[in-house]
Nucleic acid binder design. Structure first.
Lengths: 207, 207, 207, 207
DNA sequence: GATGAATGAGCCTTCATTCAT
DNA sequence: AATGAATGAAGGCTCATTCAT
C-alpha cells in the first residue's frame, strides 16, 4: 500500500541504516501529524513538514513519494493504533458495568486525542486517499461494534454497527472539546459521558 | 468586519446600482456556497466562483476583498439563517412533547443539510476567519440553548449551554449521514433521533 | 486543439486587448522557438521562455497551459507555414524543369531553416504531443507528395508518398548544414542539390 | 577526457579488481544504452541506469563522474564500433560492384540500427559533450569517405568527404524507418537503397 | 572501494490578488 | 464602477550528485 518504502525494508531486518531510516520516518510522521493538525491537509506543505522534521525535502519524498501517501500512512498508523486500543478494550468490557464501558469509551478518546484531531482533518478534508479513509472508518466502526456486542449481550450485529456509527460520531465530540476553556471542557466531558451512558443503557434496555 | 462592502453601501439606500450590486452579491454568494461545498475551501478558486456567478474576477474582489472575507460572509449569512430557524423553532417548542422537540431538531438539520455541509468545510477547514467561526458557533449554541430552556423548564442557562454544545455536535451527525447508502442512512437517522430523544428526556428528568 | 486561448479569442475580433494579447503570444512563441532550438525540449524551461519573451510566468501559462501545449502550438504554426509554402510551390512546379524543382526543394528548406531546426527537436525529442507530431509529418509528406506528382507526371500516389518520405529526410540534411563552416556548407548544399536532382530524374525515368 | 576512470586504470594492468571493474563498466554501459535509447538523454535517470546494471549509484559515479561523461563514453564506444565496421567494409569494397556497395551501406545501418538510435538521441539531444559529438561525426565521416574513395576510384578526398556527409545523413533515414509499419518500411528501405545506388553511380560517372 | 541515504537546486504549474484600461 | 489580463510567490515533486559509513 502506501507504507513508506523504508518501513517495508526495515521490516525485513534492522541494520544500523534501517535504524536511522526508522528514526527519520518517525520524525517525519510526527512532523506530519503536527502540521496536518495545525493547518489541515491542503494548507500543510511538504516543505514545512520536511523542515519541522529536520529532513531535506528530497529525503521526505524518498520515504513518502507523495503528500497523499504521507497522509495515508499517518491514517493507517493511527487506524492500527486505534484498532489495538479497541481490541484491548473489547477484552475487558464484558466484565464491566455499562456505565464503566461508557466511561471507557470517553477515556479512550481522551487518550487518543492529540493524535486524533489530525485524523479528523485527513478524513474530513479528503487528505488521504478515498480507499484509506474508507478503511479507516471501517476499522473504527468494526472495533466499536465489537465492543458494543460484548457490552450489550443480545445486540444484533446490524444494530451494533448502526450504534457504532452514532457512538463514534458522539465520541468525536470529545476531541472537539479540546478547544474549549478548561473549566467548560470538564463539564462538557461530563455531559458527554452522561450521554454515552444513557445511550448504552437505552440500547441495553431496547436490545 | 468582513461584510461585503456593497452590503453596507446598500444599507444606506438603494439606488439602481445598489440594486444591481445586491443581485451581484447574491449571485456571488450562491456560487461561493456551491463551489466551497463541492471542492472545500482550499480547492475552491476565486476564479471559478467568479465565473460561476457570471461576475468578473475584479468585481468579485470589489465586493469581497479576499477569499476569506467571502467565506466569512457566507458563514455569517448562514449563521443568520440558522438563527432565524432556531428562533422560529423556539416559539413552537414549549407546546411540544419532548419527543417532538427531538424530532424537530433532527428535521431542522435535515432541512439545512445542503447549505450545511459547506458550513462544515468552512468551519472545520479554517476557511473563514477565527472570529467568524467563533461567532458562528456562538449563534448556533445560543439558539439551541434557548430552545432547550423552553423545552425543558427548569433547565439552568449554564446547563442549557452545555447541552447545546453536545446536542449540536450530535446533530452534526445528521449531515454526515449524507454519505451513507440510503437504506443505511434511514436507519442511522432513526438511531440519531432516538439518541436525541433520550438525551432530552434524561435532561428533563435530571433537570 | 492546443491553440493558445487568446488566439481563438482574437480570432473572433480584435479589440485593443486582443491586439496586446496577440503581441504577447507572438513574443512567447518566438522565445519558445529560440529556447527550444537552443536547448531542446526537455532542457528548455518555461521560466526562461517567459523571461526571454518579457512575460511573467503566470501570463505564459495563461496563453499556453502547459509546456507541451506550447510545443504543439509551435509545431502547428510551423506545419501551417510549411503547408502554405508547399502549396505555393505546387502551383509553379508543373511548368518547371525537373532540375529547377529539385532546386526549389532545397531553396525551400533554406528559407525555412531557422524555424526548422526547432521543429526537429520537437518532433525528434517527443516534445510535442504524439498527435501533433504525427499531424506534422503527415502535412509535410502530403505536401511534398503532391508536388512530386505534379512534377513527375505518371507518378502513382503510393510511390509519391514513398518518395516524399525519403526526399523529406534528405532535405532535412539542408538544415543540418547550418552547423558547418560557410565554405563547406556551400559545397554541401551543392551536393544535396545534385542528389535531389538525380533522385527526381531517376524517379521520372523509372516512373 | 571523459573516459571512465576505471578504463585508464585497467589499461595499466588487470588485477582481479580491474576485472570486476571492467565487468561493471560493461554492465553500466549496456544499461546506459538501453535507458538512453528508451527514454532519451534527458528523461533517462542515473538511478535507473544504476539499477538496471545492478550497480550502486555511488559506484556508477565512481566510473562515470557525470551523466554527460557516461553519454560521452557510450558515444565513443559506439564510434569505435562503427569505425571498425566501416574499416571492414572498406576492405571488401574495392571488389564489389557499386550497387552492392550501396546495399552494403544500407545493410550496415540496418545492422547498427538498435545501437544506433541511442546515438541519435545523444548526438541530437546534446546528451554528450560538444567535443565528443564532433569527434563522433568525424569518425563516421572519415570512415565513409574512405570507403567511397575505394569504391569510386578517382574520387578526390574533398569530394569524398562531402559525399560522406550527405550519404551519412541519407543513411540515417534507414534508422528512422523503424517507426513505420513493416510493409511501408520495406518499401522505404528499397527506395533508400535505390537512392544510394544512383547517388554512388552518379558520383562515379561525374568523378 | 562499494554503498545508498541524503541533499537541495530547480522544474512545471496554480491561483489569490492587483491595476491599467 | 467594471473588466480581465498580468503578476509572482509558493507548492508538489524530481533527480544529478555527494559523502558518511
Amino acid at each position: 500500500m502506501n507504507l513508506p518504502k523504508q518501513i517495508s525494508d526495515a521490516a525485513r531486518g534492522s541494520e544500523p541504516k534501517g535504524e536511522k531510516g526508522r528514526l527519520r520516518v518517525a520524525a517525519i510522521m510526527e512532523a506530519g501529524v503536527q502540521v496536518f493538525t495545525e493547518k489541515g491537509y491542503d494548507a500543510a506543505t511538504m516543505t514545512e513538514i520536511a523542515a519541522r522534521s529536520g529532513t531535506a525535502i528530497g529525503s521526505l519524498y524518498r520515504f513518502f513519494p507523495s503528500k497523499e501517501s504521507l497522509a495515508d500512512a499517518l491514517l493507517l498508523r493511527y487506524a492500527l493504533h486505534v484498532k489495538n486500543g479497541l481490541a484491548e478494550m473489547a477484552q475487558q468490557v464484558s466484565e464491566l458495568p455499562l456505565e464503566s464501558v461508557a466511561d471507557a469509551f470517553v477515556d479512550f478518546m481522551l487518550v487518543l486525542q492529540s493524535q486524533r484531531s489530525f485524523a479528523n482533518s485527513l478524513v474530513d478534508a479528503r487528505g488521504a486517499s478515498a480507499d484509506e479513509r474508507a478503511r479507516f472508518r471501517e476499522v473504527m466502526r468494526g472495533g466499536v461494534a465489537d465492543i458494543l456486542r460484548r457490552a450489550i449481550p443480545g445486540l444484533s450485529p446490524a444494530k451494533a454497527k448502526l450504534m457504532s456509527v452514532v457512538l463514534l460520531h458522539t465520541l468525536k465530540g470529545v476531541v472537539n472539546t479540546a478547544n474549549e476553556e478548561p473549566a467548560i471542557r470538564a463539564m462538557l466531558l461530563t455531559e458527554i459521558r452522561e450521554l454515552v451512558r444513557i445511550y448504552l443503557a437505552s440500547a441495553s434496555g431496547r436490545g
